[in-house]
Design a protein around this nucleic acid. Sequence first.
DNA 1: CCTCTATGGTCAAGCTGCTTGACTATGTTG
DNA 2: CAACATAGTCAAGCAGCTTGACCATAGAGG
Lengths: 147, 147
Amino acid sequence: MQNSEALALSAALLAAAGELARRIDDGVAARGFEGRPSYGFAFTRLARGGATVTELGVHLGVTKQAASQLVDELVRKGYVERLPHPGDARARLIVLTERGRECTRAAEEAAAEAVRAWGEVLGEDQLDSLRDQLARIAPSGPIRPVW
Amino acid sequence: MQNSEALALSAALLAAAGELARRIDDGVAARGFEGRPSYGFAFTRLARGGATVTELGVHLGVTKQAASQLVDELVRKGYVERLPHPGDARARLIVLTERGRECTRAAEEAAAEAVRAWGEVLGEDQLDSLRDQLARIAPSGPIRPVW
DNA sequence: CCTCTATGGTCAAGCTGCTTGACTATGTTG
DNA sequence: CAACATAGTCAAGCAGCTTGACCATAGAGG
């Protein structure tokens, strides 16, 4: 593969990612929830028994201060709440509220809708192979904004 | 595919995109050029005979004011220059300088390096299929930041 | 040919989401 | 219990974008 092709491949990947983020965001909004794309990534971390602000920051690849601001926003919108942390009086456990879980489901539906559109273009088997390939190259580390 | 799988697929795609952007940015920096990830997308548009500020804004999915600020930055760093537009005295033609073309090549090399790492994980044939699949689902419209 | 509207570009102000730095409260270790 | 580490917040600052206002030139219709 030539270098220029690699850049074209990269551009295609970034363009697809941007488009996907936009579609999910729109889909969530269309279901009556207001939010930013980073909500979804926060929710996936919180879904399993909650997390502290610091853990959330690590997951999202931002400082704990930025994570704290995000949590402020999520609390204000009623998606999460800060509970005292069992076993560490310094920390707080951030957990999803019922509305937060509803918003998570809305994000899942919106994502499924977007992915289904790809399925129509690619066919089911190629979609499966795309999923497998992405799973193998996706980093395990924090999720970071693209630019 | 279940909804939760679709969200996981989406997360994988966004994570891969973020990681890729970071690697290209690092690779470009390691070759002695300072920049932001959006430079690469601007360069691919400018590479073919230049563009006006407004056209660049459309390509990047931002306002013409934001595009103008980006061009200011690129001029300051010596990557592009503003020439009078032949045939429209209102407009300026933004073109790459020699250093801008060098930076473009550096971005291509960095992208190739990152993609090569994927090739080692996936194998060449699967990498080709990934490229084809992405080409088919990538939107034709402007490239947008992921979040 | 001349007005009227559309378009390319810039300037200025403001906003959002992040950063760094400083600080308090609590936990942990020797 | 002294000393250091860690969870969280507050505050200030910054980068990159937006909206709004404006000027210069282009293009269309009388």
